[in-house]
Amino acid sequence: MKNTGALLVNLGSPDSPHEHDVRNYLNDFLMDGHVIDMPWLVRRLIVSLFVLPKRPAQSAKAYASVWTEKGSPLISISKDLQEEVQKLTTMPVELAMRYGKPDMESALVRLASKPEIKEVLLFPLYPHYAMSTVKTVVERAEKIISTHKLPVTLKVHPVFYDHNAYIEALVESAKDYLEKEFDHIVFSYHGVPERHIRKDDCTGSHCLQSDDCCQKASPAHQTCYRHQVYRTTACFVEKADIPVDKYTVAFQSRLGRDKWLEPSTSSIIKSLAQQGIKKVLVICPAFVADCLETLEEIGMEAKEDFITAGGESLELIPCLNTHPAWTKLVTHWLEKPLQN
């Protein structure tokens, strides 16, 4: 891999928790046609008329609640991961965000400027495929390389949602929490509109066509986010020996009025409390680094909802972050990438 450089890519974050920066970030994020997958004019109207007037102020308060001396948790944790990985490999490792800074364009140009680099290994920091994560990252990288006529080829590391080494690292990172006394564990994944699932169905006739579509073998599973998160859950509970009646899969972070994957995390959290469940753990395997969606939405908001509804304790299991098992695994995959 002497002629290869690596680019780790995560979602991104505002430059600061101030309303102006949050507005700019949301505009960049939501105007991506893979996030709100509608014609540009419709997307522009939705974002300008229904999101940007009020959402930035609300989101700014949420970001402020998790902001640290190092800045955005997502950015600082991702930088720490990059630094730890770089210590373990001689391969040049860059970090970028799909939206905001550090930006993908600068990172790719830096890698391509090294005369020894002939190939860039793009590593989207997402275990599962979705058009709003992996697909948009890959297309953005391809566009930058084409626009700048960079003298490198692009190799994309595949998703790893059910790879044994990833599951082992995930279980190991959660070990201390799983050894505690708890009544139920919620696997909370970032939600996506059902429309996205159908659009990514290469068969055009499998996804969401039956209640058990995710359990029926199909080529559609290669790009089916719903199937992949259920596989992650199944692999995790088997490895961690969690009984079937002691866990639930749910989806968080909804936006807009379209039909999204269900059940929602908020409804599950409240329902568990109403059923008399007292001690709940929540793990968010769709994220490899703690961020607004884990720290605030789950660690603060969902916790408050659970206790208000009658629960006693809700603990957020941290993401993989810079856990040694994860750091070593990322390094290994950069040097010996998985095959599609």
Rank of each mutant, 00 (worst) to 15 (best):
V137S: 01
H221W: 15
R198E: 09
L125V: 01
I117L: 03
S218V: 07
V192L: 10
G191R: 02
Q228L: 11
A217Q: 12
R110W: 00
M104V: 01
C207K: 08
I144R: 00
C214S: 15
L108F: 10
R226A: 10
A141Y: 05
I117R: 02
Q228F: 12
F160I: 02
F160E: 03
Y99F: 12
L108A: 02
D200S: 14
T147M: 14
E94A: 15
D176T: 13
L108Q: 06
H227T: 13
R226W: 13
P127N: 10
V152N: 07
H227D: 14
F182V: 03
A220R: 05
K101L: 11
K216Q: 14
E105T: 03
Y177H: 14
Y126G: 03
A107W: 00
S205T: 14
A141P: 07
I145N: 12
L122S: 00
I117H: 00
R195S: 13
H221S: 14
D200N: 07
D176H: 07
K216I: 15
Y161V: 12
S106G: 02
E179K: 10
S188T: 04
A169Y: 03
P193N: 06
P92L: 09
H206G: 11
S205R: 14
V138N: 10
D162W: 00
Y177L: 12
C224H: 15
T153K: 15
L178G: 13
K155V: 13
I185V: 08
L108V: 03
I145E: 15
D176W: 02
T133E: 01
D200V: 07
K216W: 06
H184N: 00
D200K: 04
E172R: 06
T153V: 05
V137D: 00
D211S: 09
P193I: 06
V138P: 11
A130G: 07
I197G: 03
P124S: 09
H163V: 01
D183F: 01
H227K: 14
Y225K: 08
H157N: 00
